[in-house]
Structures are given as structure tokens and as C-alpha cells.
Design a protein around this nucleic acid. Structure first.
Length: 623
RNA sequence: GCCCGCGUAGCUCAAUGGAUAGAGCAACGGACUUCGGAUCCGUUGGUUGGGGGUUCGAGUCCCUCCGCGGGCGCCA
């Protein structure tokens, strides 16, 4: 309904500009007027004034001309029913009659229900690849951000009208797998993982394999021999690989279930090995895109040279080892191709991968472009920053086997001269990250459960437990999402488990308050009604936040930023709490007011639930 | 050396090139004998890392310097 008003305003402004020979603005951007107690649209006349002054060669300061235009336009837009306008310092502020438009907002939300904020289907498909865990290794806190971000982006894109294909890509082969299998065969033959902790059990064995090989380098030939057996596809080994891989996968699925994440298509790295090699041999090299330096050197794509770039830009992309075996890089090319073979209509193929791989992603995309794939420009790297662990936290967990095969930058050891040295942080590695992930879930749940016990002791035990999970997981997800993708998250127990302030439980609580009011009112939402009372500023503020929601969803989808949703959800929760404090609902002064406010509460509940749903967070009825 | 990201209140973070840069946390002080106090209000707190430029207007764009993090031919 805000759209309709905006369109009406735009039409009138356009007509005015045309009539007076004023150049029209290139973009029509409306914002909200500042201050409280009212609600509406605001339009800045500065760009128009500047263009006019330039075009007509006027000798008038731009702000002065903007103000004059705003004043002239004031009566023009006031011809729209229910609109009152003011010209303030170059802005045209248009205030909507909250009785008329407030009712429209509420009615629309309650009519659309779960669809409020969602755009019509576009009939366009896109793919989002995310999670990408390695089998036989740990699933840790660093991976958590990827999954949570990926899932939220999928939900947001779906709401924006796209048909989303959720893809996962499992790193199920490589040196790490061979090392794991060696350790298993030599020291754990025949063992099975415990039902509840498959991922931990499997990753613990991986850490153990690394430790053994570090302490006893003489074992290395055995591992190499095993690799040969793998390359020869020794049936016994392949069978063991498939069986143990499944353990990892089942462990991942436990985590995905807990997080309420699912995938439509799962690709395996092992499936891309042969196609990758073939692609290099039969296409890249013959096409002159790759240079073969074997056996002295690897097969590379000299991107800068091919593109005639003086400055190092794309660098050199290594696609095959000097011994002819494949790299991670070998497999990403056939993967990208396979996606478009299976889904030729993808308007975008998105990769949710951490920022450290930015250059590598550019290399893949550029190579595919050079190969002539017309869809190469539809590939998009959605980069996000890492989850860092404070070093003091790492030290606590370091006593248990510390993974050594990943290149982790060592934290600076020297003490800073500042009075308050910043806590040092480093990237999450598998070991402490995996330990943390377990602790994180159980500890978050324990903390949430304790609070539920305290706040709402009369709830049935089972409900308390469920609520505790919703609160705990909501808080964790929110922490990961309420942040610019390109900014690091430094893991902090206090903040990860913070249930106050700008956090998911605050929003969930607002939802619960709405639910509680509606329950007390008999569980039935009154029929549509136009309010007759003078709306309270808090009431108007709440309406304006509700009305803004669909635009927020649109923007979040365009920018791939769940942050916009968390911001909107929190503002909405604040507005509800403020309204709740100031405006009696059940004991409103008259029936009409009571009915309208109940509808407003129902609309708020719906919008909060819709927002939380886009973040993958549950909106509970009680907590 | 080259490239990318970041730098905003004590801390954690917001802010389509637009109006007086806002929240949360922490600290202190208040409110409701009312619908769930996981609430609300107030106070303290800022040269948006420094300098220059573009613009009617810059936290935001450009240049430059400083600081931190990351990446840069056979790891994934």
C-alpha cells in the first residue's frame, strides 16, 4: 500500500516537472521523514534542483532552489487523499493519515499472512552452493557461519521470488581422507562410531592420524602406498571409504537437522576427479588456455599473460599437479559446468565461500569465461569473513590434540604497549572449532533452559526443552547473521549466548508477547476496522515499521545481506515493546480501539514470524 | 612488492551519497499497585584512523598516508 502512495506521488511530481521544464531525476528514491509521531514518505529535492540549476544556468544556490521546489510541490501532492505535506529544508515530507493507511497496512498483512513481505514468483531459478564440509574431518564453528548464512540467503532469495536450488559440495576425497583411512586400518580396524557423536568421533580420528604422522614420519610411505591403492580403486579400500564417508555424512546431517537446513542437490568432490582431469587434457591444453609443464612442473593457466595484463591480477591458476594427480582446483571447473548442464536456466550460480578464496574464485570464473561458456558471467562468489577465536580461548582447548596440517597464522606473541591490548584472535581450526561446536550447542541450550525454568516454571518439561532449543539456536544464528558479511566475527561466549539487547530472544519475546495478548483475547482476530481514536506515536511508529518490511526483504535479496532482516526484525521488536508499554490493548478505552490494536498486534506477530523465518529462526508461542 | 577487506561512543556493531551519525552492552538514575519485567524511559559517552579532493551535500565516492587482518604456481 505504501507502493501505491509512492506511485501516486511520483506521477504528480513527474507531471509537475514536465510542465515546468525541470529535468526528471534519474532515480526515484524515497525515504522516511525523521522524527516521531508521524509516518510517511520523504523526497529530497536536491538532485532535481541541482540538475535544473545546471541545465538552465540559474544563479541560485541549490538548497534554496530545492526548498522552493518542495514548497511548490506541497499542494500538488496534497491532492492525494489522506496525505499532508511539508516543505522542510529542501525535503518534501509527506505524512500519511495513520487511520486510513494504518488500517490498510494491518489489513494487508493479515490477508497475506505468511506471504507478507514475499514477492510474486519470478519464474527464475538460481543455485546457492554452501556448507561444503570435508568428510573425515571436523565440522566446526567456522563452518557454522557458512551454513547459517547460506541458508538465510536461500530463504531470502526464495522470498524475493526466485526458485532456489540449495547445493552442497562434499570434500570426500583428497590427502586428508587417505590419512584418515590409514589411521583407521592400522589402529582402529573394525571400530564403529557412537550413534550420537559421529562427527566428533570421525574428526578425532583424523586429528589422531595427523599426530601419529607427525610423531612418526617413518609411517609416511604407508600412507603413500595407500594413496596408490586408492588411485587403483582397490575394491576393499573403496568399500571402506564409502562406509566411513557415510559416517561423516550422517554426522553432518545431524547438524543440518538441528539447524533446520536441507539441500536439494549434493555434489561429491570424488565425482569431479576424472571429469576434471579430462577437461584439462582434452580441452584446456588443446585450446591453448593451459600450459603443460609436466613432469618438471604443473599444468597452469597463465591468466594474466593470456589477458595481456601487465600488473599481477589473476596470477597463475594451477589446475593439475606435476605428477598428473588432481587438485581441488581441478574439480571446480567440471562442477561449475555440471551445474549448468543440470540446470541450464540458472540466472545465477552463487558460491558461499569464505573471503580467503576470493582470488581463486576469480581464477575459476575467468578460466570458464575464456573457455567460452556464455554463463560465466552468472557465477557469483558470495564472500564472508571468518569466525575468529580469541587466543585465550584457544589455549584452553589446545591441551587436547591440536591439528597441525592447516596453515593457521600464529597469533602475535609480543605484548602490546597500549594500556588495553586488543584480545588477539585467530582463525578457527578444526580441532578447537569442533570441540567448541559441541560445547556451543549444549552450553547454549543449558543456559536457555535455565532461563526458561526461571521465567516460566509452569510450562511442561517438554515444552521448556523445545523452547530452550529455539532460543539457543536463535541466538547463535542471529549472532552470525546480524553482521556485515565482510566483517569478521570474533567468537565470544558472552555474546554468542547473549539473550538480551540486540539478539534473537528479544525478537522472539516480542512475538511471544503478541501471542499472549491474542490468546487472552480469545484467540480470534477481530474483523477489519478503521480506528477512530487518535493514534499514539508508538502506535504509528509500529505501523511504519510493519509497512517497511517488504522493501527490506527486497533489498536483502538484492544485496545478499541477511543483516537487513535482522535490523528490521529488531526495530520491529523494539517498536512493539514500546507500543506494549504505552498503549493498552485488552483494556483499551473503547471497542474500536481494542479491535484495531488487536489486529495491529496480530499483524506484528505475523511480520515478526515472517522475518524470523527468513533467518531460519523459530518464532515461539511461549518462552 | 602487488591485490582484497576492515578502521564509527569504553566494548560489540548499525547507518540507499541526504536532515541533529544511531542501537545494544556496560555504568549510573528512574517508571508501571494495568495486558508476560527476557520490558520501557532518562543521563554519561563521537575530530566516523590522519590529510587532501569530487559534490548543493561525504562515515559512505576518488587520491594519499597510517594501523590491523587476509590472499598471491602444484593446500583445500
Amino acid at each position: 500500500m505504501l507502493d501505491q502512495v509512492q506511485r501516486a506521488v511520483q506521477e504528480r511530481l513527474q507531471a509537475y516537472f514536465r510542465e515546468h521544464g525541470i529535468p526528471e531525476p534519474k532515480t526515484w528514491r524515497f525515504s522516511r521523514p525523521p522524527g516521531e509521531g508521524h509516518w510517511g514518505l520523504s523526497f529530497a529535492l536536491f538532485p532535481v534542483a541541482a540538475a535544473e540549476v545546471r541545465a538552465k544556468g540559474l544563479d541560485v544556490p541549490v538548497p534554496q532552489r530545492a526548498q522552493a521546489l518542495a514548497e511548490a510541490l506541497r499542494p500538488v501532492v496534497e491532492t492525494i487523499p489522506g496525505v499532508r505535506a511539508e516543505a522542510v529544508r529542501g525535503y518534501l515530507n509527506m505524512y500519511l493519515d495513520p487511520r486510513i493507511y494504518g488500517r490498510q497496512v494491518v489489513d494487508t498483512i493479515l490477508e497475506q499472512g505468511p506471504a507478507y513481505g514475499r514477492a510474486p514468483r519470478r519464474g527464475q531459478r538460481l543455485m546457492v552452493e554452501f556448507s561444503q564440509p570435508n568428510t573425515h574431518k571436523a565440522f566446526h564453528v567456522g563452518h557454522l557461519r557458512n551454513v547459517i548464512l547460506g541458508e538465510a540467503v536461500c530463504r531470502i532469495l526464495d522470498a524475493a521470488g526466485y526458485d532456489v536450488v540449495r547445493a552442497n559440495y562434499l570434500g570426500d576425497i583428497g590427502w586428508h581422507v587417505i590419512k584418515w583411512l590409514w589411521n583407521y586400518l592400522k589402529f582402529h580396524r573394525g571400530e564403529e562410531p557412537p550413534e550420537d557423536y559421529k562427527t566428533r568421533w570421525v574428526s578425532d580420528l583424523y586429528v589422531e592420524a595427523n599426530r601419529r604422522l607427525k610423531e612418526h614420519p617413518e609411517y609416511e610411505p604407508e600412507v603413500r602406498a595407500l594413496f596408490k591403492r586408492w588411485e587403483a580403486r582397490d575394491p576393499e579400500l573403496v568399500a571402506l571409504w564409502e562406509k566411513t564417508r557415510q559416517w561423516s555424512i550422517e554426522g553432518f546431517e545431524q547438524i543440518y537437522r538441528l539447524l533446520d537446513v536441507h539441500f536439494d542437490r549434493v555434489y561429491y568432490e570424488s565425482e569431479m576427479e576424472e571429469p576434471g582431469k579430462a577437461l584439462v587434457e582434452e580441452k584446456l591444453i588443446p585450446m591453448g588456455i593451459a600450459r603443460d609443464y609436466r613432469p618438471e612442473g604443473p599444468v597452469v593457466v597463465p591468466l594474466d599473460e593470456l589477458l595481456g595484463l601487465e600488473k599481477p591480477t589473476y596470477r597463475t591458476y594451477v589446475v593439475l599437479r606435476s605428477d598428473g594427480t588432481s587438485l581441488y582446483a581441478t574439480k571446480d571447473l567440471p562442477l561449475a559446468i555440471k551445474k549448468f548442464e543440470e540446470y541450464p536456466d540458472l540466472v545465477k550460480s552463487i558460491y558461499v565461500i569464505d573471503v580467503r578464496q576470493s582470488l581463486y574464485m576469480k581464477q575459476i570464473f575467468k578460466t570458464l569465461e575464456l573457455m567460452g561458456y556464455e554463463w560465466a558471467d552468472r557465477l557469483y562468489h558470495l564472500a564472508y569473513e571468518l569466525v575468529l577465536l580469541p587466543t585465550n580461548l584457544v589455549q584452553v582447548t589446545e591441551e587436547v590434540d591440536f591439528e597441525t596440517d592447516e596453515t593457521i597464522p600464529e597469533a602475535q606473541a609480543e605484548t602490546s604497549t597500549e594500556e588495553t591490548p586488543k584480545p588477539k584472535a585467530k582463525a578457527a581450526s578444526s580441532r578447537e572449532g569442533a570441540v567448541l561446536l559441541d560445547k556451543l550447542f549444549t552450553e547454549a541450550h543449558r543456559r536457555a533452559r535455565a532461563i526458561v525454568d526461571e521465567k516460566n516454571p509452569s510450562l511442561p518439561d517438554e515444552t521448556k526443552d523445545q523452547v530452550a532449543w529455539h532460543v539457543a539456536l536463535g541466538a547463535l544464528k542471529y549472532t552470525m547473521l546480524a553482521r556485515e558479511n565482510t566483517r569478521t566475527v570474533t567468537f565470544d561466549w558472552k555474546k554468542a549466548l547473549d539473550f538480551k539487547g540486540n539478539a534473537a530472544p528479544t525478537i522472539q519475546y516480542a512475538h511471544v508477547r503478541c501471542a499472549s495478548l491474542l490468546r487472552r483475547a480469545g484467540g480470534r482476530v477481530p474483523d477489519p476496522v478503521t480506528p477512530t481514536h487518535e493514534l499514539h506515536p508508538a502506535e504509528i511508529h509500529l505501523i511504519s515499521e510493519l509497512a517497511a518490511f517488504p522493501k527490506v526483504v527486497k533489498r536483502a535479496a538484492e544485496e545478499y545481506k541477511p543483516l537487513h532482516i535482522t535490523n528490521a526484525a529488531f526495530r520491529l521488536a523494539q517498536a512493539l515493546n514500546d507500543f506494549y508499554d504505552r498503549c493498552p490493548v485488552l483494556n483499551a478505552e473503547d471497542e474500536t480501539t481494542r479491535a484495531f490494536r488487536l489486529r495491529l498486534v496480530a499483524a506484528t506477530k505475523q511480520t515478526l514470524a515472517n522475518a524470523l523465518n527468513l533467518l531460519g529462526i523459530v518464532a515461539p508461542e511461549v518462552m
